[in-house]
Design a protein around this nucleic acid. Structure first.
Length: 328
DNA sequence: AACATATTCAACCGCAAGAAC
DNA sequence: AGTTCTTGCGGTTGAATATGT
């Protein structure tokens, strides 16, 4: 049976979000900040459940989300972090601050998993003749598995190092400079790689205008009859259905996100402690300032620290696995 | 051109943890 | 201490889109 769904109420809209709804949500969050999601549908008049609002914000609307193709570095990091952390997408996403866990999860499920299994098939067919050893990966001898794990850890370190290195990998580096960085040139650079909420929505708007969701479940026809709580929103709604490009541009100017973003570089809007990243290590922010060993330490402290049978903690990354047979 | 199949990804669902009462 | 509420997470779904026949 289980608990009834939180959104089982009548009158709660489901399905794809419309630009109108996005605007309402963003303008509300701009005013009140993220959090207290329960109050969002009530206060905005959105016919969405709180969960849906939070998800829309965290996955698409919040500033700092990068969309589009994953870079090689990102791919590497995902692969190795997945090897280290498993399907802890939120944890993995914390190392790629500009990507959402949903994005990473989708990318993994639709692309990386297949790619890796292909590679694994190829290598396992080569390894089949080798003598087997019963380990957690049956097709691999224990020594192989240990060595691979070591290699994975090493590569993950390397990938992390590359990704966080300030002089490398422009896209990643820029992303790492989250809005909390104070320098204005960093702000400029972030606007090229980070998408602010405005940019997110304006992009959505543009693509939406190109391909209006005609068949979508009442999406476009659902005019938000509630003349929403925020003045900005209500004025926006009146102009929405007509001028497409102007709309998105008007939207950008409406919220003045350039100033908004920069004014929030040190603010709590995108980095407020009570929101999405509250438990995340926020590596992107200061990665270029932190000694890398510290990051490593944090990474491995959290994820690879394990306990031996004697209850003594062992840091896996520091172990020479082959020399510690008792580990298994 | 029309249909079938595969792929992508936004959104939903249910569960768990922790906060609030 | 127990219950309820809120939020976050990971798995899954299904509509839209791309690709193949």
């Amino acid at each position: 049976m289980g608990r009834p769904p939180c959104c089982d109420k009548e009158g709660v809209k489901k399905g794809p979000w419309t630009p109108e709804e996005d605007i309402i949500l963003v303008s509300y969050i701009q005013e009140h900040g993220p959090g207290n999601w329960r109050a969002v549908p009530t206060n905005t008049g959105l016919l969405r459940c709180s969960k849906s609002c939070r998800l829309r914000w965290t996955n698409y609307l919040r500033p700092g989300i990068k969309r589009g193709n994953f870079t090689d570095n990102e791919e590497k990091m995902i692969i190795h972090l997945q090897a280290l952390l498993g399907n802890r997408w939120a944890a993995i996403a914390s190392y790629l601050p500009q990507r959402t866990d949903n994005d990473i999860k989708n990318y993994w499920n639709t692309y990386l998993k297949k790619k890796l299994s292909k590679i694994q098939n190829q290598s396992s067919s080569r390894d089949d003749h080798e003598e087997g050893f019963s380990s957690s990966q049956p097709s691999m001898s224990r020594g192989q598995w240990e060595r691979r794990l070591q290699t994975d850890i090493h590569l993950a370190k390397q990938a992390l190092s590359e990704a966080l290195s300030p002089e490398k990998s422009t896209s990643l580096t820029h992303h790492d400079q989250k809005p909390s960085s104070s320098s204005s040139d960093q702000t400029l650079s972030t606007t090229t790689t980070y998408a602010s909420s405005t940019e997110n929505i304006s992009r959505l708007l543009k693509s939406w205008m190109r391909n209006p969701p005609i068949k979508r479940s009442g999406g476009t026809t659902t005019t938000t009859t509630t003349t929403t709580t925020t003045t900005t929103t209500s004025s926006t709604n009146t102009t929405l259905p007509n001028n497409n490009v102007d709309l998105s541009e008007a939207f950008e100017s409406l919220f003045g996100f350039e100033s908004f973003e920069s004014s929030n570089n040190n603010s709590d809007f995108s980095q407020s402690p009570d929101q999405d990243h509250e438990s995340k290590p926020n590596i992107g922010n200061n990665a270029h300032q932190l000694p890398f060993s510290l990051l490593e330490k944090w990474l491995f402290d959290e994820t690879v620290t394990t306990t031996t049978t004697q209850g003594k903690e062992v840091v896996l990354s520091d172990m020479i696995l082959d020399e510690n047979p008792n580990f298994f």
